[in-house]
């Protein structure tokens, strides 16, 4: 029982420190990325934590949506903070370009509405 508590604690500490490792910039020394000059968020600590959450969220949603597990890591790694936030909030509803064929469907629906409202008369037998 004691060991398991100790384990839990060390896992917690390790995971927090790993999160922190991930947040460090890639550049050496204290050169800041040019993106730091453009980002306007003043609470960067908060942003970093939110980004970690967004990353986990996007990863989970992608797997749920049928993306191959092997590809998920690579796709998530490519995204910057802003993109991660966007996807995390909007992945289910954002426009997903897929096919041009549905145009016929749209025309059909419009015709059907016009038909039902009696404006046109092309579907009925004469």
């Amino acid at each position: 029982m004691k060991i398991s508590l100790w384990r839990k604690c060390s896992i917690a500490v390790l995971s927090v420190s790993m999160l922190n490792m991930g947040m460090m910039g890639a550049a050496s020394a204290a050169i800041v990325d040019t993106s730091a000059l453009i980002a306007t968020d003043r609470e960067a600590d908060l942003v970093a934590i939110r980004t970690q959450l967004a990353r986990a969220d996007v990863r989970a949603q992608m797997e749920q949506m049928g993306v191959d597990a092997a590809a998920v890591e690579q796709r998530v790694a490519r995204l910057n903070n802003h993109e991660l936030h966007q996807l995390a909030t909007d992945m289910r509803n954002a426009p997903a370009g897929g096919d041009a064929l549905a145009l016929i469907g749209a025309v059909f629906v419009v015709l059907l509405i016009l038909e039902l409202t009696g404006v046109i008369d092309i579907f009925k037998k004469r």
Binding site: M65, G66, V67, R75, L87, M91, A96, G98
Partner: peptide, 12 residues
Amino acid sequence: YIPARRGSLQVE
């Protein structure tokens, strides 16, 4: 490609 969305997202 995102199978459940049958398409690709602008962000990606």
